[in-house]
């Protein structure tokens, strides 16, 4: 499989705390990579480093290299803002823009990138909502506020919003942890469907979710990458004892 991203000895700090202690791993194209591990292991920080979102908070620091295609995204010449339109992100809690309608939420990214033609926007919004599996539910009320939707719908709206700017990679930070089982199912189906178009990296604390949807799984513990393998292999025969302990529920 082709590789899409690669981190090399990636270290990250939050204030004085070192969250990541040197992560080296590849992320494959058109696959779903799941990151699992107990809370506080640095899995969220890791994907926030992949589109340079970690640095928007104060007192944070990143060292090491992250290769995207053949570019180090932490190189001087890279514009983090542009990078983030190529590597999208969906957050733990659905965060549609509260002042905007459903349509405007999806169109927001495009508009602010300077695309103004109505037909173009209409097409893009419909396409993104289709991809997110939300179109049939909201097509008659596109002008309603985005926050009027249910939690699961809001999260899919956020996915549509992220897809609208055509990212090559979609980072998902525990996207279903705040949702009910039915909505979680929707998001999982969606991820599997989307992987043919975008590369997905998903952080989850739900092992079953990782097992169900991901192609590759990485196990993080206290800022270290313990094991990284094909999901099947990892869940059936983990090579590290700590991974085994974790997936058999002995801690975390």
């Amino acid at each position: 499989m082709a590789q899409r991203m690669r981190t090399e000895n990636l270290k990250a700090w939050y204030g004085m705390n070192q969250i990541l202690k040197g992560i080296t791993m590849d992320i494959e194209k058109n696959a779903i990579t799941a990151i699992i591990g107990p809370s506080g292991c640095g899995k969220s920080t890791f994907i926030r480093c992949l589109n340079r979102m970690h640095e928007v908070n104060e007192g944070t620091r990143v060292e090491g290299k992250v290769w995207f295609e053949d570019q180090d995204i932490y190189a001087q010449s890279i514009d983090p803002v542009e990078l983030r339109s190529r590597i999208g992100m969906v957050f733990q809690k659905p965060n549609p823009f509260p002042t905007m309608s459903i349509f405007e939420n999806v169109a927001a990214g495009l508009r602010l990138h300077g695309i103004r033609r109505t037909s173009e926007l209409n097409d893009a919004v419909e396409e993104s909502l289709q991809m997110a599996g939300l179109w049939n539910e909201v097509k008659d009320r596109l002008q309603h506020p985005g926050v009027s939707l249910s939690g699961g719908q809001q999260q899919r709206l956020c996915i549509a919003r992220a897809l609208a700017v055509k990212p090559e990679i979609l980072l998902m930070d525990e996207p279903a942890s705040a949702l009910d089982p039915v909505s979680t199912g929707h998001i999982e189906d969606l991820a599997i469907k989307l992987k043919h178009q975008v590369t997905i990296v998903i952080v989850t604390h739900n092992l079953h979710q990782a097992a169900r949807i991901s192609d590759r799984t990485a196990f993080f513990l206290s800022g270290d990458l313990i094991e990284y393998d094909n999901t099947k292999d990892m869940f059936i025969s983990p090579s590290d004892k700590r991974t085994n302990d974790y997936i058999s529920g002995r801690f975390g």
Binding site: E82, G114, V165
Partner: peptide, 17 residues
């Protein structure tokens, strides 16, 4: 040109950062 490329090209007003 795809929409995607358009977006990358359209990063105007960079000086406003």
């Amino acid at each position: 040109a795809s929409l995607q490329q358009k977006i990358y090209q359209k990063r105007r007003f960079r000086w406003m950062d």
